[in-house]
Write a protein that binds this DNA or RNA. Structure first.
Length: 558
DNA sequence: GGAAGGACTTGCGAGCACTCTT
DNA sequence: AAGAGTGCTCGCAAGTCCTTCC
């Protein structure tokens, strides 16, 4: 591997303001999605029952739709309309004259072609598969790494996104629109001046090559659906990302020091004469207590209708003066990030309840609950309370502190490793529930639960038998006792497994583990209770959290 | 001061790869 | 050896929050 530029950095970019500021960045540029291969002649598209040869560009877009035929997306009207509208834009004028209705388009042959092709690929002999893997590894090796200030670092996403049909989440108004192919002419390269500038594919040029050491991306382009910029950045295992991660948790730890003061302050503000302050203090209470997201405004009609705290509308909450024997209950029901439903019934303190009644007076269901508040206002206030404080820090703080407290409460030093891990998972789960990290119940859940139960029943029987035998055979006592003990232990372990699985049915632990829980808490816990770190972090996670594994000893306190 | 643009983190699900069972 | 089940990686959408521009 070339190590050019490590010793000679005299030519490197200089920028003096704060920020990332690397001295050397060298890479190969993005790896481009493979070009379109036209369909064989015998795979036909039919319009109105008659075969029709499409122009290559038109055909390519048709294949995007054909590939998705058995996906639910293609049954949705918005998806169909958006696709058809964009498809027609790319047709030749003759094609456009002919193809006027999507219902008359028959993609079935094309669809079958791709299904078959996919199966053929899966059925490939081992050696062929091995060869394909080696080719992929070669590409990874060549394009998947960069050199940043003398260190070889893994890149997160070194490939451009392939063209296709946009799939939004939830009720997205743009679903089905055509995502265009990214060409070198769309791509901005960022690298140091002294480094070897990456070569664009032959016959092509980059949109721009720049040297901006205040940012961390290697390449970028603007996508055509939302007109937003996409970036090629480093892998979480990189030093740069690790340092940022560490910083994030340090900010959250600083919040720990002032959170009591902030809480008494927002409680006081519930009685403020200013409406703006009251709204701010109630919103902050939600963000703190319920770990809600900030809730930026969104452009209407451009994205799915989802909300966070500051963008909650009257229709998203119901007030119950009394519910199930509890007073002042707020019932939340709204779609949050990724159109995941947030549903929760929460007893709140009386002033909060009274304030909410006030905020909702004379408003329609579609009106903003906090009409005098937005995330900019809220974050400005938070910044005054603590340097670096923003709404999202509360999520990080409350997630991490909850893990630490739960681990303390649930872990029994006398337990075996399996039981300790159940405790760990339960603590992790408490956080995931707080942050509303959900998942669809896995498809094989019922079945695999039954299998596990069958195993447990079998083990119980074995245990019973061993007990009987022990009674019968007084001789050979030691061996029988041991086998009894072993069976008992296995049963316990299976029961633990089953409990864990059941409790985890609809909860996703990954997001909190990766993004909200200070890894030093987990590392310290492992060290303190003699649990190998591999039991809670897999290889990738250990790479991402290398900084924490290095740093934390068993008495680390968040 | 507010809209638009930009950079970066967070989030879920699909599909692949690996393991375990039969 | 094959098939099922599970864990892990990757893709890329969708957030947050800061900066820039008028």
């Amino acid at each position: 591997m070339k190590q050019q530029g490590i010793d000679d950095l005299s030519n490197a970019c200089e920028k003096t303001d704060d920020g990332v500021k690397w001295k050397q960045l060298e890479h190969k540029g993005p790896y481009f999605a493979p070009l379109y291969e036209p369909l064989p002649d015998d795979v036909k598209f039919y319009y109105d029952g008659k075969p029709m040869k499409l122009n290559v560009a038109t055909e390519e877009i048709a294949t995007f739709y054909a590939k998705m035929l058995d996906h639910e997306y293609t049954t949705k009207e918005i998806f169909q309309n958006n696709f058809f509208y964009d498809w027609r834009k790319e047709m030749t004028s003759e094609e456009r004259k002919k193809i006027k209705h999507l219902e008359k388009c028959d993609f079935k042959e094309m669809h079958k072609y791709f299904v078959d092709k996919n199966e053929a690929r899966k059925a490939l002999p081992k050696e062929e598969k091995q060869k394909l893997k080696e080719e992929a590894d070669k590409i990874q090796e060549e394009y998947g790494y960069c050199i940043l200030d003398g260190h070889r670092e893994k890149i997160g996403n070194f490939k451009t996104e392939p063209p296709g049909l946009f799939r939004g989440r939830g009720d997205h108004p743009k679903m089905g629109m055509l995502k265009k192919r990214i060409m070198p002419e769309d791509v901005i390269i960022n690298c140091s001046k002294d480094s070897q500038t990456p070569e664009p594919p032959s016959g092509h040029k980059w949109k721009e090559v720049r040297c901006d050491n205040t940012v961390t991306w290697l390449a970028s382009w603007t996508e055509n659906i939302q007109n937003s910029i996409k970036y090629i950045m480093l892998n979480p295992s990189s030093k740069l990302k690790g340092e940022k991660d560490w910083q994030k948790y340090e900010v959250a730890r600083r919040l720990k020091g002032v959170v009591n003061k902030i809480r008494s302050q927002y409680r006081a503000d519930w009685k403020s004469r200013e409406m703006k302050k009251r709204q701010r203090s109630v919103a902050l209470y939600f963000i703190d207590k319920l770990a809600l997201r900030a809730g930026n405004e969104k452009e209407e009609g451009e994205t799915a209708d989802t909300v966070g705290c500051c963008s909650l509308r009257v229709e998203h909450i119901k007030l119950h003066p009394e519910l199930d024997g509890q007073e002042h209950v707020v019932e939340f029901d709204f779609l949050g990030k990724d159109s995941i439903r947030y549903y929760n019934k929460v007893p709140v303190e009386k002033p909060v309840f009274k304030n909410l009644q006030l905020f909702m007076e004379n408003k329609d269901p579609g009106d903003d609950l906090f009409d005098r508040l937005n995330t900019t206002v809220l974050n400005k206030h938070l910044q005054d309370l603590m340097d670096g404080l923003t709404a999202k820090v509360f999520r990080t703080y409350n997630a991490s502190i909850t893990l630490q407290e739960q681990l303390k409460a649930l872990t029994d030093a006398e337990d075996n490793v399996a039981a300790k891990l159940l405790s760990y998972n339960r603590a992790n789960r408490a956080v995931a529930i707080l942050c509303n990290h959900q998942r669809a119940t896995p498809k094989s859940f019922e079945k695999s639960m039954q299998n596990l139960q069958a195993k447990i029943d079998a083990k119980k029987e074995q245990l019973g038998e061993a007990q009987m035998e022990l009674k019968r055979a007084k001789a050979d006592l030691k061996a029988k006792k041991d086998s009894l003990l072993a069976e008992g232990k296995q049963l316990l372990k299976l029961n633990v497994q089953a409990t864990d699985k059941e409790e985890n049915k609809q909860i996703a632990l990954g997001t909190s583990k990766l993004n909200y829980l200070d890894p030093r808490i987990s590392v310290a816990w492992c060290k303190k209770f003699g649990v190998p770190i591999e039991k809670i972090y897999n290889k990738t996670q250990r790479e991402k959290f290398a900084w924490a594994i290095d740093m934390a000893d068993e008495d680390f306190e968040f």
